[in-house]
């Protein structure tokens, strides 16, 4: 039988399909790993309810655990408590930045309905604070589009949720 630590280390090898530098563990979507005589239970949580990657991630975890020879495992999905960007690990944030995606700046979305002053997001390439939001919505549900006024580079920002 595999220990919890082993299962966690296997999960470290499963990469997010949209952001392949982050493991599902870095992303913080693994809620829990339980092992007992009956087998292993991995509980995951979706980032966005409609995120098409959730299904792929589940399949990727399944094939990784099979490849590692883990017997009798089940994957459960749990939506509560809701995932927030706070669940992304420190390590994950560093990897995001190196990959060219600005990590989330704060934990929850700004509740002001009309945003006259969007929060300051630093360019992941030149670190300038002189950036503009192009759109709240980006290439995947979890990202917004920004552009840097100093180095002129467009970039993705992992928006706070």
């Amino acid at each position: 039988m595999n220990t919890k630590e082993q299962i966690w280390s296997f999960l470290d090898e499963v990469m997010d399909p949209e952001i392949p530098v982050l493991s599902v563990r870095d992303l913080g979507i693994i809620r829990n790993v339980e092992t007992d005589a009956a087998g292993t239970t991995v509980t995951i949580t979706p980032t966005y309810t409609g995120c098409p990657a959730t299904h792929i991630i589940e399949e990727d975890i399944r094939s990784k655990l099979k490849e590692k020879g883990v017997a009798n495992f089940t994957i459960k999905t749990n939506i509560s408590p809701a995932w927030t960007t706070d669940w992304i690990s420190e390590e994950g944030r560093k990897k995001l930045k190196i990959y060219g995606i600005a990590p989330p700046e704060e934990s929850t979305p700004d509740k002001s309905l009309v945003s006259n002053k969007p929060k300051v997001v630093h360019c992941p390439r030149c670190h300038s604070a002189n950036t503009d939001m192009v759109s709240f919505f980006g290439s995947t549900p979890c990202k917004a589009l920004y552009t840097c006024r100093d180095c002129k580079e467009p970039f993705d920002y992992f928006k706070c949720l």
Binding site: T49, G50, L145
Partner: peptide, 19 residues
């Protein structure tokens, strides 16, 4: 950008509908 925004919102709504 707006094309992407609307399809993102559609996806969120679909996710809610599924639940």
């Amino acid at each position: 950008e707006e094309d992407i925004a609307l399809t993102n919102i559609a996806l969120d709504l679909l996710g809610q509908a599924r639940m």
